[in-house]
Simulated scan of single mutants.
Amino acid sequence: MTDYVIAPPAAADVAVEGTDARFPIRRVFCVGRNYAAHAREMGKDPDREPPFFFTKPADAVCDAGGTIPYPPLTQDLHHEVELVVAIGRGGRDIAPEDAQMHIWGYGIGIDLTRRDLQQQAKDLGRPWDWGKAFDRSAPCSPLVPASRIGHPTRGRISLSVNGELRQQGDLADQIWPVDDIVAICSASVELMPGDLIFTGTPAGVAALKPGDRLEGEIEGLAQLRLTIGAPLDRS
C-alpha cells in the first residue's frame, strides 16, 4: 500500500444512466467555438479558425439534477450546453474512421463560464483557466453507453432557462464532428479511458443569475436539469 503524506482526494466520476455504476473521470477537454453561429456571436470567423481545446479539472464535473452555487469572482456567469463524449479506450493519432471504437458513451453537459474573467484573460493575453476551470463548472447528465444508442451525428441540442428557450442547434451543425474531434485531440495528447470531451456549444449563450432553472436536452440521447443557487457564504 502506498504511504501518502496526506489523504488522497476522492476520484472524480459521473453517473451512468440506468445503473448505480459510475464513470471515472481522468481529464476534461473542451472544444472552443465548434458551431458556426456561436463562433460568429463571439466575434470570430468559423471558416478561418481550426479547432482548439482548453481543459477543466476532472473534479469540475458534477452531477446535474440538483443545485449548484453561483460561483465567486464573477458578475457574468454564462451557460454553454454541449454534447459530452466519454472515452473508453485510449489511443494516440486515432484516425477519424476509427474514433467510434474509442468512445464509451455520450451525455449532455454545460460548460459554465465566468465570461467577465474569460474576457479579462483574453484582453491581457492570459490563459482562460479562471474563466473556465472553476469548481462545479461542468455539470453533466448521466452518461449513456454507445452500445445502447449508437453514435449520434445529428439531433436537436437545446437549453432553456426558466422555461425560455435560450440555445438551440443540431449536432449536425458542428464544424468539426465528433470523429474529427477525437482524432485531432489524440494527435496532441494520448487519449486515455476516463477522458471526457465537451464538444462545443450552439449560439445563444447568455448570463445566469441565482434562482435560474436550466433544462438541457439532446434529442434521443439525454436530458439535464439543474438550478443555480445563491453564492456560497464566504464569511
Score class of each variant (00 low, 15 high):
3 D>L: 12
7 A>T: 15
10 A>M: 12
11 A>V: 11
12 A>P: 13
13 D>H: 09
17 E>K: 09
17 E>P: 03
20 D>T: 14
22 R>I: 04
23 F>G: 00
25 I>Q: 01
32 G>T: 11
33 R>W: 14
33 R>Q: 15
33 R>K: 14
39 A>Q: 09
41 E>R: 03
43 G>E: 13
43 G>L: 12
45 D>P: 10
54 F>C: 14
59 D>Q: 13
62 C>D: 13
66 G>W: 14
71 P>W: 09
74 T>V: 09
77 L>I: 10
77 L>S: 09
80 E>I: 04
86 A>I: 06
90 G>T: 12
91 G>L: 10
91 G>S: 11
94 I>W: 01
96 P>R: 01
98 D>P: 07
105 G>L: 11
108 I>R: 02
113 T>P: 04
114 R>I: 03
116 D>I: 01
119 Q>I: 09
120 Q>V: 07
122 K>S: 09
128 W>L: 12
131 G>T: 04
134 F>W: 13
139 P>I: 06
140 C>V: 15
140 C>A: 11
140 C>R: 00
141 S>D: 04
148 R>E: 15
155 G>T: 08
156 R>N: 14
156 R>I: 14
157 I>Y: 03
159 L>S: 05
166 R>D: 06
166 R>L: 09
169 G>C: 05
170 D>F: 05
172 A>K: 10
172 A>V: 11
174 Q>G: 05
176 W>S: 12
180 D>W: 08
186 S>E: 05
187 A>F: 08
189 V>C: 13
189 V>R: 03
190 E>F: 04
192 M>A: 13
195 D>C: 04
211 G>K: 05
213 R>N: 08
214 L>V: 13
225 R>D: 15
228 I>K: 04
233 D>L: 06
